[in-house]
Write a protein that binds this DNA or RNA. Structure first.
Lengths: 198, 198
DNA sequence: TGGCAAACGGAACAGCGTTCCGTATAGTTC
DNA sequence: GAACTATACGGAACGCTGTTCCGTTTGCCA
């Protein structure tokens, strides 16, 4: 569920980076574990102190390892984001049409977002602190999305020229809101349907 | 830009309600004025103290007149929301097709939202404090939107059964995010296009 | 003009993110 | 194994929020 940490020079990491102390590596792992649990229980906006308490460390330790909340969020979800990005080629190969692959891939992205309380909101936020988060997601997912869009456009299924960044951001926005009568999946479906040529 | 206040029993208001003191009415007006200016400068999330300072009153006075931030926001924008709702019938009468009227009306709503920093975000928030805001907007705008949707469905332009609340909420979500490459209008256009039967 | 209910102002409190520095300790060197 | 140093830790402290509360002021009416 959680990986070894963002910039941590594990034995397999960057060779020239100085090796971190054992307690530092232990705490980083504990923090990622605690943060993942806290995000699940209380959303990604959970107070920093709560995460620190769960991990059994002081708040200073959080900031040392993860200067911004975005770094922590990225640390927790990087594997899942990566997996989502890597799922695109297979979907493209297995689906009957590129647009079906696009739909399936976006469904997967939406599933990821709606199960993480507040994550979509954080991604959409234009706060400087979340710039990193925004950037990280986009860096990984935009190329995957672009391939799907290109394939669908080449097949004549959708109008060409859609910016994958913009589309993904819109999907994120649609996933950010919660209401009893609101189904983000349905609205995203409408959005993707709107891409189709008629 | 700002009206006389939410529940304020002005001479023309509720007959049985006790008339408020002159300074209270003056302060309520000043607060609405100050809030409108502050929202424009710093978004609807501007600190309460800033609004109080602009209006030349203490923070206690704000809470007396507007128990929640949502009440203040509603007070500031109620006229514009009302006007938006009332524009629907005319659009329906003047447009060549119901779907065109729907598009135009939603464009108007989007224009309203994107020019109010943070308003869409506040509307989408599921915080209890913003329940009021959410409810207010929906109460006014849902009937207007429903008429347009019904007309378009009756004309066979869109699939019937779309929940106007859900659609409006989705539009709000799309307007909540900001990014250099992101154009909420375009994405809302995609969403509305997705409604069309093909 | 006197009195009282209404309204005011801002101090005070609680919860948050963030910084900072005295203290503890892992790793290295002798 | 002991001493030393850079690294890392913990949590108090600070500043900025929303919100409450109560002593003081003031508009209004008799």
């Amino acid at each position: 569920m959680v990986d070894g940490g963002a910039g941590s020079p594990t034995p397999g990491g960057r060779a020239d980076a100085p090796r971190k102390r054992a307690d530092a590596r232990r705490n980083e792992a504990a923090l990622l574990e605690a943060a993942a649990a806290a995000f699940l229980d209380a959303g990604v906006d959970v107070p920093v102190r709560d995460i620190a308490a769960r991990a059994g460390v002081g708040v200073g330790t959080i900031y040392r390892h993860f200067p911004t909340r975005a770094d922590l969020i990225v640390g927790v979800y990087r594997h899942q984001v990566q997996a989502c990005a890597e799922a695109a080629p297979a979907l493209l190969a297995d689906s009957v049409t590129p647009h079906a692959a696009l739909t399936a891939w976006i469904d997967r992205f939406v599933d990821f977002l709606v199960t993480k309380h507040g994550l979509a909101g954080a991604m959409s936020s234009d706060t400087a602190a979340f710039e990193t988060l925004h950037g990280y997601f986009l860096d990984r997912l935009v190329p995957a999305c672009a391939r799907l869009l290109d394939a669908a456009a080449a097949a004549g299924e959708i109008r060409p020229g859609t910016d994958p960044r913009e589309l993904l951001f819109a999907v994120g926005n649609l996933c950010a809101g919660r209401a009893p009568y609101y189904d983000a999946r349905r609205m995203v479906g409408l959005l993707v349907a709107g891409l189709r040529l008629r």
